[in-house]
Computed example of a mutant assay.
Amino acid sequence: MSDRIDAAGAVLWRPDPDDRTGRTLQIALVHRPRYDDWSLPKGKLEPGEGTRAAAVREVAEETGFRVALGRHLGQVRYPVTRPRRATKHVDYFAALALAGRFAPNEEVDALRWYPLVEAVRHLSYPHDERMVAAFADLPAELTALLLVRHAKAGSRAGWDGPDSRRPLSATGRRQLPPLTALAGLYAPDRVHAAPLVRCVDTVAGIADQAGVSVLTEPLLSEKGYAGAEETAVARFLEIAAGGGCPVVCSQGGVIPDLLSRVAGSAGSAPVPELLPMRRPESKKASVWVLFFTAGGDPALVAAEYVQQP
């Protein structure tokens, strides 16, 4: 049995800078002199690193661009012989180029931007072509909304104040750095939370990183949601309709029902990660990355559940 090598990469894209209408886009291909090939930027995971973080890091190292991570496009597997005989597993994501400049390096000596159809003709490998096809299945410009369940809080029995003031536990505080790092991969620009200390504190670091304040959402607390589900869903979709990359922190008594209602709303695609579940997962400090169509009435078209180790 061959060894396994885990890697991650991205379909790096941007609006065509020469198209004033903003309707066309380009994707980046990199040339690796060691193999004399044209491929999507990718690389091996570092020890303890997740696929999403690796994809963002590898794109930056190979292309010089800072990105906003997008949806997961799929995983490809193929045999390699260098540096050893193994099977390589590569997870690919969409990634919007935000800023940067390419500079030749040891691994990549050239980068070229191509329109989508033309890029496929220049790729050296069929598995890269499949990832570009997966990227083209949905619009490039989607709103990524991060729905977060608050980190672990202290026990109710050990707290004698109002429940809304119950703070995070020591374990909950340890959950915050990886959660903040994960959210940062998507370049969030707005942060919302149910008006409970444990919810606000869970996303405070994300808000600080983005340079914004946490906006409280009473309807997205368990107390506010009960009996006002339709109004709460409408508020949630209003946040999604604002575009960009919002973060919303809520509670375990809200998130599963909210997800089911949003997934079943008009215009939303049947999302396999949601609809077969009678009660969608929602562990403490976990994140649902929800992708909505941009502009107008947002429709949910993809969803990914990320649980912290």
Rank of each mutant, 00 (worst) to 15 (best):
Gly243Gln: 09
Leu147Lys: 04
Pro115Tyr: 13
Asp91Cys: 15
Leu176Tyr: 12
Val287Phe: 00
Glu141Thr: 15
Gly22Asn: 10
Arg174Ser: 06
Gly158Arg: 08
Arg71Ala: 00
Pro256Asp: 15
Arg198His: 03
Ala266Asp: 11
Gly224Thr: 03
Gln75Tyr: 12
Gly205His: 08
Glu106Phe: 10
Ser268Arg: 00
Ala194Met: 04
His192Arg: 13
Ile239Met: 02
Asp19Tyr: 01
Val214Cys: 03
Gly158His: 14
Cys249Ile: 07
Thr216Trp: 13
Ser169Leu: 04
Trp159Tyr: 02
Tyr35Cys: 11
Glu304Pro: 03
Ala299Thr: 11
Ala194Trp: 01
Ala136His: 15
Arg278Glu: 07
Gly296Cys: 06
Val30Leu: 06
Ala285Arg: 01
Gly74Ile: 09
Phe292Leu: 04
Glu129Lys: 02
Gln209Arg: 12
Arg66Pro: 01
Leu219Ser: 09
Leu168Met: 11
Arg34Tyr: 10
Glu281Val: 11
Val59Gly: 01
Glu273Ser: 14
Gly9Glu: 04
Leu220Gln: 15
Asp37Thr: 07
His31Leu: 11
Pro218Glu: 04
Val108Thr: 10
Glu273Phe: 05
Pro33Phe: 07
Arg156Val: 09
Arg149Cys: 06
Ser265His: 08
Val67Phe: 10
Gly244Lys: 09
Gly172Gln: 06
Arg77Ile: 13
Leu96Asn: 02
Val248Glu: 03
Gly154Pro: 08
Ala133Ser: 05
Pro33Met: 10
Pro298Lys: 01
Thr21Met: 14
Glu61Arg: 14
Ala302Ile: 12
Met277Gln: 08
Ala269Ser: 06
Pro177Cys: 06
Val203Arg: 14
Thr81Gly: 06
Arg77Phe: 15
Lys44Asp: 07
Gly211Val: 07
